[in-house]
């Protein structure tokens, strides 16, 4: 963590060091760079070292270490917090792929702890109970990169302004119902396309757009100009089958988080590998069909429509 960060938000610059500079850790480029290397991959929730090894063996690009998967957080209720450092270190010791871990929204001390543990990515996550109903973490102050959830473009751009180096559409975690994930990735992609169109015909309207999106103008302008987010966009929340993962990829996701969908299913090792295959060959129905065969029971799941509003996690985050 850098205590004396005085530089302004570096959202558009891909590099911050001139050629002759001394080595530079924690720059936007290296933070976003790790997410770039995860593209086309599957990040899996795991609660034990054994599950982490199964995930790695199935071809996961990273694991998310946590105490309870979202389906159990939902079932058991209560306040959900950062995991015990012993659990996280046990998982770090078990695998060689990147290890991510979650902190509560706004809980910057949990983030300091995870940075001290040298996790590879922090997820400031609505799946845990929020610690601050006004502020998210000032992620620019950290060397470790952050991923944050978003249901729409404005939310994604606010997180990027705070320093998020990766965005995931939220979906509705712990349900096995992919409909919210579909809605969120479609919403974000649709809003990006809208900005791009506006840039071509009336760029002066982008000032009002920035106001409507409640996001900084310079990032809005960058998205309008390039037609994409300045960071990698994954999808999360409700992905339970190879076909679910491939659909998210065809809708424009750079990769997929799978939470409860793997280890709440009948045959986690087979399902994990099948989802990895379908994510890599997302545009090849023959390979997706092959990957979908004989996986046993998928997680039972909950229809999002049956969830009372206070239990919808995607609405957390501001």
């Amino acid at each position: 963590m850098t205590d004396l960060q005085t530089t302004p938000a570096q959202t558009s610059a891909r590099t911050t060091s001139p050629a002759d500079a001394t080595p530079l850790t924690g720059s936007p480029l290296v933070k976003r760079g790790l997410a770039d290397m995860l593209k086309g991959g599957v990040i899996m929730d795991v609660v034990t070292a054994e599950q982490a090894r199964i995930a790695e063996d199935a071809g996961a690009v990273a694991v998310m270490a946590l105490e309870r998967v979202p389906a159990d957080i939902r079932a058991q209720g209560g306040v959900a917090r950062m995991s015990d450092p012993d659990l996280i270190e046990g998982i770090q010791a078990a695998v060689s792929i990147p290890v991510m871990a979650k902190v509560r929204i706004g809980h910057f001390v949990e983030a300091q702890v995870l940075e001290h543990l040298k996790v590879d990515y922090i997820d400031e996550s609505e799946v845990l109970s929020p610690a601050d109903y006004v502020n998210h973490i000032d992620k620019q102050r950290f060397t470790v990169p952050f991923v944050c959830g978003a249901t729409n473009l404005g939310e994604a751009l606010r997180r990027i302004a705070e320093g998020a180096a990766m965005v995931r559409s939220k979906g509705e975690a712990g349900t096995g119902d992919v409909s919210e994930a579909t809605k969120h990735i479609r919403t974000i992609r649709g809003q990006i396309a809208e900005l791009r169109a506006l840039y071509a015909i009336s760029p002066d309207a982008l000032y009002v757009k920035a106001k409507e999106l409640a996001a900084p103008y310079d990032i809005v302008l960058e998205v309008a100009r390039t037609g994409k987010l300045p960071v990698v966009l994954f999808t999360a929340g409700g992905v339970a089958t190879p076909a679910d993962a491939a659909m998210m990829m065809q809708l424009g996701a750079d990769g997929v988080f799978v939470g409860s969908g793997i280890f709440k299913s009948g045959n986690p090792a087979a399902r994990a590998q099948a989802i990895v295959k379908a994510t890599a060959y997302y545009d090849d129905p023959e390979k997706i069909a092959e990957a979908s065969r004989g996986l046993g029971e998928a997680m039972v799941g909950i229809n999002v429509g049956d969830l009372p509003a206070p239990h919808r996690l995607a609405e957390r985050g501001w």
Binding site: T15, T16, S17, D20, A21, L29, V30, Q92, K118, D120
Partner: peptide, 20 residues
């Protein structure tokens, strides 16, 4: 781990070009 990831300048090959 990722907290040690960094940008740096390197000297490349025999002609000693600087590479970011």
């Amino acid at each position: 781990t990722q907290t040690a990831s960094e940008e740096a300048a390197l000297t490349w090959g025999e002609d000693g070009a600087t590479v970011r």
